[in-house]
Design a protein around this nucleic acid. Sequence first.
DNA 1: AATCTTGTGTGCACAAGTGGACAGACTGGA
DNA 2: TCCAGTCTGTCCACTTGTGCACACAAGATT
Lengths: 258, 258
Amino acid sequence: MDAHIGKANEVDSRPANNLLRRLSQADYALLAPHVAVENTMANDLLYNPGDDVQLVHFPCGPALATFLVPNEDGRDVETILVGREGAVGGIVSEGFLPAYTRICVKFGGPFARVNVAKVEAAKQRSPSLRHIFARYADCMLAQIFQSTACNAIHSIEQRTAKWILAAMERTGDENSVPLTHEQLATLLGVGRSYTSRVLQSFRAEGVLETRRGSILVRNRDGLRLRACLCNDAVKLHFEEVLRGVYPTAEASSSPARG
Amino acid sequence: MDAHIGKANEVDSRPANNLLRRLSQADYALLAPHVAVENTMANDLLYNPGDDVQLVHFPCGPALATFLVPNEDGRDVETILVGREGAVGGIVSEGFLPAYTRICVKFGGPFARVNVAKVEAAKQRSPSLRHIFARYADCMLAQIFQSTACNAIHSIEQRTAKWILAAMERTGDENSVPLTHEQLATLLGVGRSYTSRVLQSFRAEGVLETRRGSILVRNRDGLRLRACLCNDAVKLHFEEVLRGVYPTAEASSSPARG
DNA sequence: AATCTTGTGTGCACAAGTGGACAGACTGGA
DNA sequence: TCCAGTCTGTCCACTTGTGCACACAAGATT
């Protein structure tokens, strides 16, 4: 499956994170001494609100993190997904701050970690590195803006479809998402029974199948048709701003399919 | 009303924006040569999606801007409010990027404007200036995260109350908001008739009065009681991260009332 | 004073989503 | 192999919010 990767080069040995792979050799060399890769499991917490942010985490491979906003009644609300196209922790704040959100591993996998101070030092030395991080920060911002709008006006059906697609794009898994209905519901901040009903209607229309603890997508275009366009809008911004960094672009392991 | 301000100093002559006033004299001196103040009217557009971001705008006094996310059906969705506690345009992206959102003046008033490149140059020269901007960017991020969560789980009644309070805090107007029901509704991304009904119920409970084209708040605590806590959470983060910048704090023209 | 435009209050039928309940179906251990 | 725990499908009564319609009110204009 990696046959399309021709001659081996230095990039191939980097962690499977598109942001890190996007860096020039010189820029990556500034970070390389400080990169450590650690494995995570679903539901591991990377940060809690108020934590001192010390490490930037780069999701690698199928790993996926989400930002949770704590709520008065104790149930957290999920906001955005970050996979191998990006990074979490100190990206905007540059680190000398208490975390506002909780950051949680949704799908387990490796994360490359770099001390925030080292990243800042590297940014001071290399404008191009600084620019790439600023560009990614802007993309993340776009993603959150779009989520805010999406939550305001799109139906649960649209958002469910959107989320399944977004998760698949990031993990690289072509047709399944390892989530229970319950998890999917809390993720969207909605009731479980209604989520089940939506999935049920998708199943009836041949769009997907449901397994205990996971969802198998049978007709991706059908799912796209039922999703809002929020994902595409964000993806377009990533493409414009960070050409090649977003996983569905050429940096992805699946070269086809825009 | 400004009696509590003792001896005049250089800060008093700066534009009435808390972020600018928060800067040390040395840091402000780096920006001062490039600051121009321009007046705006409600509905002026500062940026449209895709625009090349050239200027950072600092709302002054009662001026208020919002970030709009364009939507497939043409109606924009409002996301966050920025008043004299902050700034819009190139704060996170550092400017070399197409704008993702539309930025619109909600309540007219003066805006201080500085070229993004000049701001970046000043940030290169002064770490403390850089840190303040990074801190504000983090606060803005927190604000958007909270909005995303809020839109996902809070009722229209709660969000209506929240919005009225947030607008008043920023403009400094103690008891009125110059908005029609229609504007308030589109702002929240909801139907006009339901918004009218919510305001009607607030009126019936003695919380506010409605005038043609504006809302008069009669019982601010009552309104607080009916709002979600999203505003307070964000305000707390501002306080922790940028002490004194948020308008209800000591930098405000109304020294009492935390 | 008559008129026009825009905003406001309210009624209604309907759609979307909630939250609790419960039976049945998987699955991982003991 | 059986049990216990979790996940799933579905029912139901109920709340929230939509979208349209229409009468009326408040300014603004002439």
